[in-house]
Amino acid sequence: MKHKLNDSDLVQAISFVWSQWRKQQLPLAIFIVLCLNLAIAPVVYAASDGILERRSAWAIGILGFVTIALVIYLFVVVFQPERF
């Protein structure tokens, strides 16, 4: 029996993720980065003209997201040190 995705199921899933955001930020952030990497990795792979392997394109995409996250974190630490 196939289960179709209803609008109410989608709203319920979004509300569950939204309610868990405050409790578990790190796993959700990792999931979002991996989902965004689904869009970035093919662009990196296509820009390399087949020189890179797909695995390397994924690694470069994740490395880019980690670098951006580190820059944002350090920016916040420098300009708001009382929070840390």
Rank of each mutant, 00 (worst) to 15 (best):
M1P: 04
K2C: 06
K4H: 11
K4I: 13
L5D: 01
N6Y: 06
D7T: 06
D7R: 04
D7C: 01
S8Y: 08
D9A: 12
D9M: 14
D9W: 04
D9P: 00
L10D: 00
L10K: 04
L10G: 02
V11I: 08
Q12P: 00
Q12H: 08
Q12S: 15
A13L: 13
A13V: 12
I14K: 05
I14F: 14
S15E: 15
F16C: 01
F16Q: 06
F16W: 05
V17L: 11
V17F: 07
V17G: 05
W18P: 00
W18R: 10
S19R: 04
S19L: 10
S19N: 09
S19Y: 06
S19I: 10
Q20F: 10
W21T: 14
W21G: 00
W21F: 14
W21Q: 07
R22N: 14
R22W: 10
K23R: 10
Q24D: 14
Q24S: 11
Q24H: 09
L26Y: 06
L26Q: 02
L26W: 03
L26S: 02
L28T: 07
L28E: 07
L28V: 06
L28Y: 10
I30V: 15
F31V: 09
I32L: 12
I32T: 11
I32F: 10
V33K: 01
V33T: 10
V33F: 09
L34Q: 08
L34I: 06
L34S: 05
L36V: 03
L36T: 01
L36W: 05
N37F: 08
A39Y: 11
I40Q: 03
I40L: 14
A41C: 02
P42F: 15
V44K: 00
V44R: 01
V44Q: 02
V44P: 03
V44D: 09
Y45E: 11
Y45I: 02
Y45T: 01
S48A: 14
D49Y: 07
D49L: 07
G50Y: 12
I51A: 13
I51H: 05
L52N: 05
R54L: 09
S56W: 01
S56D: 14
A57R: 04
A57W: 12
W58T: 15
W58A: 15
A59S: 12
A59G: 08
I60Q: 11
G61V: 12
G61W: 13
I62D: 04
I62P: 02
I62V: 13
L63A: 15
G64K: 02
G64T: 15
G64Y: 13
F65E: 09
V66H: 02
V66N: 04
T67H: 09
T67L: 13
T67S: 09
T67C: 07
L70K: 03
V71D: 03
V71K: 03
Y73H: 10
L74P: 00
F75L: 05
V76T: 07
V76C: 04
V77T: 10
V77L: 10
V77S: 03
V77M: 05
V78P: 00
F79M: 06
Q80N: 04
Q80S: 03
Q80C: 04
Q80Y: 11
Q80A: 07
P81W: 06
P81T: 05
P81G: 07
E82P: 00
E82L: 11
R83C: 06
R83N: 06
R83L: 14
F84S: 10
